[in-house]
Design a protein around this nucleic acid. Structure first.
Lengths: 308, 308
DNA sequence: TGTCGACTATAAGCACTCCTTAGGGTTAAG
DNA sequence: CTTAACCCTAAGGAGTGCTTATAGTCGACA
């Protein structure tokens, strides 16, 4: 088995024509070169060099190996340089999966900063809701998945338990509150405008507009924690659409702050609800991927962007 | 520095998708693979694999390295195969330098046997007289040089001293006698025909026809050892020409037996001369080259052919 | 749900490799 | 004849790599 170290030494010897010169070039002592060459000759089974007092010549086998060594060592250094580029963030790819409400503000600013600091990194972005995004992460279809979980849940809700993410690396980004959305003509709108928090229990008779399936399940759980089952008339994972429906007077809704940052619907009044419900937004990745430089840097930009 | 061993292990892991399977394929234990991969990841500075319980996937850096590894390992095995071919005499080149009288019988039969045993070996033949052939050997222009030296020389002749070949490898092939050549009409021809050996001293008054410069010097030394200085009228290194000149009655000569094997001149009578003069034909090579398989085999064929 | 089988990571021990220093022999130049 | 440069060999110490043994984890199957 020819080893790369052998070839590096052999090339130096072939180029300089001397063991001592090769040793100087390689930064080691001459006996080291001598031993390496002997080992190489033994491993290939035939002499490679002719020691003739004054000069050092190659045998036919030596010429042959020298020819091959050029390509092999070129390939090795090319590989090393490419990997060094990835490790040094002069290259590298990160596939990011995010849920829609994260895409509005958080992800764009993080991407902008990433682009500014590491222009060569290639970032791709795909939209997917949490259950699916984690699946993609485990399947190797992305490096980072943005997800969220609801805090302050009734103890009965086992869905958002501690080990929902299992062995994934969890980087908390931010926690945002859920706020209530009412049509401006709604009977609670004026009180909300005045700053009075609404009790969930007061909303037992309202018609509800829900978000994505997961958000919908969460809404049901929260309402049942407050003692009633919500009447859900519409459900869509398009947040602006939810706000639009509320503005049209078709019902009330509860959306995370983050989703509303870039939404300014007409005829909608926001209200704080009690008991407070918070949502934690996190970035997820696999333990090994967390050590990939490009992934590491992207995570860093995400937590930075989350601090506004 | 990426080492070849790393790449071999990495390729096995990438192909099988498992450390254990790679270990089985490589014929070692699983911890060995585990350690090698960790060392490789550390040396390139970024993770190459994603361990996700069930399966083993490559990171971007891993994919990159896998791409490069194909070419690098292909180059390595190509080099190993080519060197193995040279070492196994399925390839290999031997450049042989011989003097003219060796080319007539000895070298052709040796080449024929070499061709028969190792058809793939490429043998080239160049003609040169001993002083020059040794020079070519030292200059790297050939692998084997055929040469000769005279035995039974007067002690004064230091030229053919022990260290004429210095540190070269000397393989004795054969020793042939020098025989006298006389025109058949010569006064000694009849006695020679009867088998009476001629004394050198009897030839003091003859006209001589000499061979190559070296042979000529030797002739002078031998004659002076016998008490006279030869009168040399012609000198040529073409042995058939020497014999032809003798046959034409232009003088006497002394040629090695070997040179006469393929020469059957008309009008020439051979005679044994006293004191007997012998010539030793040897094959020379450099110590390192003596271990090159093709050179080794060619030397073997030469000594074999020398035994008729 | 519990157990079994397969996989990986880690630790300790041992052999081997590799590099160094030290010393000797040879060759070419001053 | 001396010097300098080169190569080889030998011996010692540091490091690498492999092995066995052990623990932990995941998925399958009853």
């Amino acid at each position: 088995m020819i080893e790369a170290r052998h070839l590096r030494v052999f090339r130096a010897v072939a180029k300089t024509g001397s063991f001592s010169a090769a040793a100087r070039r390689l930064g080691c002592t001459q006996p080291a070169v001598s031993q390496q060459m002997r080992a190489l000759e033994q491993s290939v089974g035939t002499p490679l060099l002719v020691r003739t007092g004054r000069e050092m010549r190659l045998t036919e086998a030596g010429e042959s190996l020298a020819r091959h060594a050029v390509g092999i060592l070129a390939g090795l250094t090319a590989a090393e340089e490419e990997l060094a580029a990835i490790a040094g963030l002069r290259a590298g790819r990160v596939r990011l999966v995010s849920f829609p409400s994260g895409n509005s503000v958080l992800v764009p600013t993080a991407l902008a900063e990433m682009r500014a600091e590491h222009p060569a990194a290639q970032i791709s972005l795909v939209e997917a809701e949490p259950p699916q995004s984690v699946e993609m992460l485990r399947a190797g279809d992305c490096e980072i998945a943005l997800a969220f979980r609801y805090l302050d849940m009734p103890a009965a809700a086992a869905e958002s338990a501690e080990d929902e993410w299992g062995d994934l690396v969890v980087r908390p980004l931010l926690t945002d509150r859920l706020v209530g959305l009412f049509p401006s003509r709604h009977r609670f709108a004026e009180e909300a405008q005045a700053g009075r928090p609404l009790e969930m229990a007061e909303l037992a008779e309202e018609q509800w507009i829900a978000g994505c399936p997961r958000c919908r399940r969460h809404l049901v759980a929260v309402c049942e924690g407050a003692g009633f089952t919500p009447r859900i008339d519409f459900a869509t994972d398009d947040y602006p659409a939810v706000a639009g429906l509320v503005g049209a007077g078709l019902g009330v809704a509860m959306l995370p702050e983050l989703a509303l940052e870039s939404v300014h619907p007409k005829g909608v009044t926001f209200a704080e609800v009690r008991p407070a419900v918070r949502r934690e937004v996190v970035a997820l990745t696999l333990p090994d991927l967390a050590r990939v430089p490009a992934v590491e840097a992207m995570l860093e930009q995400l937590v930075h962007a989350a601090r506004r």
